[in-house]
Design a protein around this nucleic acid. Structure first.
Length: 472
RNA sequence: GCCGCUAUCGUCCAGGGGUCUAGGACGCCGGAUUCUCAGUCCGGAAACCGGGGUUCGAAUCCCCGUAGCGGUACCA
């Protein structure tokens, strides 16, 4: 709907990246991080780079990569560069490693986790592990970065301000395994520099990693990007969002019938507000108003109820053609005239795409069998109401909602019954359930012959049930 | 343990020293829409984590406590 200029030619120097690790589906938390990066890029006409953080060979899979890309596309988050695999940056990583080894900023060390633990027991738990001194390095083993004991590393964070970390609290951390493969905190720093990323917008869980990356950047003589650490998303129980919380992945949201634009709007508002009391912000508005420095510092809870409400708002705003196409795609059906007519009467009632079918199903299939509905409604004067309704409808020329209303409207009075005593039996007769769109619209949409036939069938069944007692 | 981060209605977002008897949204409760459900409209209940400071004055600034979260891997 909204349009943006193609980003092939960036109009500003801002370069951000979204760097998921393909160890699972795209989470709502990850989706929000992606969205924030995308909004920041679009806001200042910069560039969004997609980088796949796949240095964990054990857990990374190609299927997960595809799934993440697919989720991003569905969300409408398009990237300008990539996806690039971190694995493919190996040459650059090796070169950086060599430089560090050569300058003495890094060294090989055969110490194991147990050795490090023992070291700390000796020197204190508030001190980071320090390996062999310069010139004393070993020929093989993991490669560690030399961290100074003195001073502190400060992260100047867009959302948190200055956060200071004492250097002595960090280990001489491992940047490459014994086999030469690189580790996250090293690879990230090298890649961010190589890709000339200017602003790193990512989850809060990386805040404590940032000083390490800064140390790597410093040792390599690279300039550091700006950082913005956004809070994590939690489930209703206050715990970190996970599959236990129901719809936790983008894929699940999609399956549940949520619209991408509603998801964007809702997710953007988790941890960020436009500054006034607006809640319904379309994507263009999001792009216009989003600034990473306005993100809140506290973690937020994902609340599907609000998403659902918001989704309903977006669904009702669509014009009938868009609505029909969207519903058709979701249901895997043809967007034909019949579906369009069905959508017309269902649009203002459904909050998600998944709620549409139950409302219009009676137009495509025989009435559902719902014993409870039948027992509740098809009693007392129901048979008489159906007889009168069938009669009124049978005489009709036109069969549109207005005509149907004209025919059916006087029936309750004529019979001396409350409207509900007449309309509910009709509803159950034609849909099988007690819930449907407006009765006049429903009858008109079904059409004369099927309606009359279903009413007749219902009357027959009532008649044959009559002698029985409670059980229908 | 150590190093950090965070703390306003159930939830999300405002408010950042006086205008706060704390505002908006979702949800919830009640009413209206004389066909169900949903929608829509109207009304209502609902919060500044605790304790100390600073100040004439603190939801707002500082300290402590408490709680939650993150990091502390040859994971990302």
């Amino acid at each position: 709907m909204e349009t943006w200029a193609p980003m092939s030619i960036a109009e500003s120097d801002l370069r951000v990246r979204f760097a998921p690790s393909p160890t699972g589906a795209l989470h709502i938390g990850g989706a929000r991080t992606a969205l924030y990066n995308w909004l920041a890029a679009r806001h200042s006409h910069g560039t969004l780079v997609l980088r796949i953080e796949d240095t964990d060979l054990e857990r990374s899979t190609a299927e997960n990569v595809d799934q993440i890309l697919d989720a991003l596309r569905w969300l409408g988050i398009e990237w300008d560069e990539g996806p690039v695999s971190q694995l493919e940056q190996a040459a650059g990583h090796r070169a950086a490693l060599e430089r560090l080894l050569e300058s003495g900023a890094a060294y090989r060390d055969r110490s194991t986790a147990e050795d490090v633990k023992a070291w700390k027991e000796r020197y204190g738990s508030d001190r980071g592990y320090r390996g062999p001194v310069a010139g004393d390095g070993e020929a093989d083993g993991a490669i560690r970065l030399r961290v100074p004991d003195e001073g502190e590393t400060v992260v100047d964070d867009l959302v948190r301000g200055e956060v200071r970390f004492p250097n002595r609290s960090f280990d001489d951390f491992v940047i490459a395994r014994g086999d030469g493969s690189v580790l996250y905190n090293f690879a990230v720093a090298v890649d961010d520099a190589a890709m000339e990323i200017t602003e790193v917008i990512r989850g809060d869980d990386h805040l404590s990693n940032t000083p390490k990356q800064l140390l790597v950047l410093g040792a390599l003589g690279h300039e550091a990007p700006r950082y913005a650490h956004v809070p994590l998303l939690h489930g209703p129980d206050g715990k970190k969002l996970s599959k236990r919380h129901g719809a936790a992945s983008v894929q699940e949201l999609r399956e549940r019938g949520y619209l991408p634009e509603a998801v964007r709007n809702y997710v953007a508002l988790l941890g960020w507000g436009p500054g006034d009391d607006e809640t319904l912000l379309d994507t263009a508005e999001l792009v216009r108003r989003f600034r990473p420095e306005d993100v809140r510092r506290a973690s937020a809870v994902f609340d599907e109820k609000k998403l659902r409400w918001m989704n309903g708002r977006y669904m009702r705003e669509m014009d009938l053609s868009d609505y029909t196409t969207t519903v058709a795609t979701f249901l895997g059906r043809e967007a034909d005239e019949q579906l369009r007519a069905a959508c017309r009467i269902a649009q203002e009632k459904a909050q998600t795409l998944a709620e549409v079918w139950p409302l219009i199903r009676f137009l495509f299939e025989p009435p559902v069998e719902d014993e409870k509905a039948w027992r509740k409604v098809m009693k007392g004067d129901a048979g008489e109401a159906l007889r009168a309704a069938g009669e009124a409808l049978g005489e009709l020329g036109e069969f549109d909602p207005e005509a149907v209303e004209t025919a059916l409207g006087p029936v309750p009075d004529r019979l001396g019954l409350k409207p509900g005593k007449v309309y509910q039996p009709i509803r159950v007769a034609i849909t099988g359930t007690t819930v449907s769109p407006g009765i006049f619209e429903s009858v008109a949409a079904l059409g004369r012959a099927p309606t009359l036939q279903r009413i007749a069938a219902a009357r027959e069944r009532i008649a044959s049930d009559e002698p029985g007692t409670g059980r229908s």
